[in-house]
């Protein structure tokens, strides 16, 4: 739950940066775009395993730290004692994996904004940053809405990444459902947790639909 609250805004910022980069690229646009969208095609389990390779005790992060002489011997990063690190690892993995979907939505949304708006803004002397704030963001409202809705709901359901990285040390809603259903053989409790997921999802959807509604009379 807390995970979603932290991950989604970070992802929004990153996705905006990535989308702006893609939109402003002239050369190598398709290559960069392809690279950015790679995580989109990966399973969340695969993403979890990938980051496990980095964070585990004999993993790459430790190799690097020791190589740089920052720590004497490999430290056990993903353990019961280090919930903070566990949490950070999951956030990183989620950031890595799921920013792509937001970026794709935003890039296609930016493609829909007519160039005239930017030209007009330029005529009135708006600099790059102002154009982004005053033109891109408001015009991007519908895409932002879709992106935020889909991502927050998916973030609430996050499952395999957490399992792969932390086992059952870090409980999230979806892993609770799974755990109740299989390890404790309690279908009722599983269903109850699943309903909590639904309630949150509906709330999120309603909030975003309200907050980012396109103003009446505004046309794209």
């Amino acid at each position: 739950m807390l995970l979603a609250v932290i991950v989604v805004p970070l992802q929004l910022i990153m996705a905006l940066v990535m989308a702006s980069v893609v939109a402003s690229l002239k050369t190598a646009r398709s290559t960069v775009l392809y690279i950015f969208t790679i995580p989109l095609g990966l399973s969340d389990l695969a993403a979890g395993l990938i980051w496990l390779a980095i964070f585990e005790q004999s993993g790459f992060l430790n190799s690097m730290l020791v190589g740089l002489g920052m720590v004497q011997k490999p430290i056990l990063l993903l353990s019961y004692q280090n919930t903070g690190v566990l949490f950070a690892a999951v956030i990183l993995a989620e950031l890595w994996r799921a920013t792509a979907i937001m970026m794709v939505i935003l890039v296609s949304g930016m493609g829909l904004i007519a160039r005239e708006y930017y030209e007009a803004a330029e005529v009135f002397g708006a600099n790059r940053w102002q154009r982004f704030l005053k033109v891109t963001l408001p015009m991007l409202r519908p895409s932002l809405q879709t992106a935020l809705m889909l991502r927050s709901i998916a973030a609430i359901e996050v499952f395999a990444v957490v399992i792969a990285l932390s086992g059952t040390t870090l409980p999230v809603l979806a892993s609770q459902v799974y755990d109740w259903q299989f390890n404790q053989q309690n279908g009722g409790a599983a269903a109850a947790v699943a309903l909590v997921v639904l309630a949150i999802s509906i709330t999120v959807t309603v909030v975003f639909t309200r907050a980012l509604r396109t103003p009446e009379g505004a046309t794209l």
Binding site: L40, L42, A53, V104, G109
Partner: peptide, 23 residues
Amino acid sequence: GAALVVPALIFIFAVRKYLFAMW
């Protein structure tokens, strides 16, 4: 993990042109 990743990479490369159609 690699067995999961590699086919997915190939697939996404094959459909990259259409990724935007849906959104």
